[in-house]
Design a protein around this nucleic acid. Sequence first.
DNA 1: AAAAAATACCTTGACAGGCGAAGTATATAA
DNA 2: TTATATACTTCGCCTGTCAAGGTATTTTTT
Lengths: 115, 115
Amino acid sequence: MTIASDLIRGNTDTIILASLMKKDSYGYEINKEISAKTAGEYEFKEATLYTAFKRLEEAGFITSYWGEDNVTARRRYYSITERGKEEYINLLSDWNRSKNMIEKLIDTGVMEDGE
Amino acid sequence: MTIASDLIRGNTDTIILASLMKKDSYGYEINKEISAKTAGEYEFKEATLYTAFKRLEEAGFITSYWGEDNVTARRRYYSITERGKEEYINLLSDWNRSKNMIEKLIDTGVMEDGE
DNA sequence: AAAAAATACCTTGACAGGCGAAGTATATAA
DNA sequence: TTATATACTTCGCCTGTCAAGGTATTTTTT
């Protein structure tokens, strides 16, 4: 069962920023964390992920730096900025509001909760 | 406060089908119902709404017919099909799964519930 | 030693859905 | 008579996703 990407779409940035709220990280690792948290059910497509990084950096919500020489391939680390933290809070609030709205609009009582 | 359309995007069809689960209806009316249910917070843009009708009809999830001559302007009524009802159930289930996934991924504990 | 897989990043071009803008047509309210 | 409400339609732009392809290094397997 695949998750329709249009359902995740509006939350891409929020997911990335949420991850960076905890610690600096890089694309590959963020994706693996998402995969782990969702028991392998979800992961960004690479093009989507790196496009999102670019978008977020241009908007000033994250900054990036090359990781120290490490054992494996080179890594570009991302760090959330103050403005990014504010944005994350705003996006969370947007999600909560839209979630409630959607629930109000799509419920017809035909489905059990949690189904 | 506007709702980001990317947060609604994946639910456009679900919202329309949910409305048609209750009774046949037409574009303008569906939009007014949505506006009422959300206390004026949301409404589809016309182009979005009519594009969605076309998409749903081509997919066989709804059918349409012109309303009887009425007092105001002509109305194209839409009716949900059996396949449309199945699709609605599937979309509801998709929503529930993705909603849970998203919550798992965006929560960092910084925000109170319902905020 | 060679091949394959894992780690890690990047870019291009196509596609789909949302939507601003503009248009059509009728009825009612000011 | 002018504006507003009702009601639908189409065109073209914009944005985000993603298939496909590429680069480079390290580790594991054969």
